[in-house]
Design a protein around this nucleic acid. Sequence first.
DNA 1: GGGTTATGTTGGCCTAGCCAACGTTGGTCA
DNA 2: TGACCAACGTTGGCTAGGCCAACATAACCC
Lengths: 151, 151
Amino acid sequence: MSDDSAINPPARLRALISWQASKVNTVGSRLTAARMPLTARADFAVLAALEEGGTISQADLGRRLGLDRNDVNSVVNRLHEGGYLRRETDPTDRRRNIVTLLDAGRTYLEDLQSLTEIVQAELAANLTAAEAEQLRALLAKLLQAHPALPS
Amino acid sequence: MSDDSAINPPARLRALISWQASKVNTVGSRLTAARMPLTARADFAVLAALEEGGTISQADLGRRLGLDRNDVNSVVNRLHEGGYLRRETDPTDRRRNIVTLLDAGRTYLEDLQSLTEIVQAELAANLTAAEAEQLRALLAKLLQAHPALPS
DNA sequence: GGGTTATGTTGGCCTAGCCAACGTTGGTCA
DNA sequence: TGACCAACGTTGGCTAGGCCAACATAACCC
């Protein structure tokens, strides 16, 4: 079998955290796509932010999630059309749309949580629990030094 | 300053390796884009594979890099038009295009290597050298359990 | 009261990953 | 040998994601 040698990526790439992260991201997308529509990832992010943050504006959602305003907008549109959240203009600041999680959104969130946990387990299948925790800690520490949004 | 609390992503997301990897990938893209055109990443991958693997076919390139055949094709097109590599049909198997790195490709590769190292340092700015090495090892171990390509 | 800033919204661009289909070529096996 | 099957390169297209620009409205500041 020459599979192993053929599949091995070049050392110059294996040395790059950015390349590895890109590949982990790709594998995660594939595992996710096997269990839910890909757009459910963004849904999950917004729902989780609402569940944790309560009623917040779309702009705040974007800042917490590291998403652009217009991208938040399209996700909120989708979730609103699905009846998962309520969207109303903030009476104290009429520029803002404040968004509130509805009960349907909570159940949707928990459904996605279950599927997500399966995907995480598959993704980290080769790691012990301690290694997975270490990996999360290192990734978090790396991310801590960088802004969630470009500007 | 309510920045810290506002910027913090929800715990449900922080617990996901896939979400963290996606964010690291995004940050890496941003840092990369500040130093080179984004397409140079794919160039770098192909050039590195050629430098390490010698003369190989496009299909082999795809397998080593985890890229789809048509994506390899477009990168090879770009590099060929730039005069960085030679592309000829394999005399022993006329289905294949075998691709060879040229001198211009080597210098281009080294140029990208320099820029890439800067980006890696910026990306891992918050990690010690030991932590960065640990992170690379954990990501590699995670990736080991997954195929580079879907099918 | 005038300029600046934040917000939501629309529209668009590019990269990346993926899939389908086609013609060509090589391999298999009946 | 001939007929099917697999691999390859190539073209074309789809989706998601990250990003930017522009606009109107609304709040803020001095």
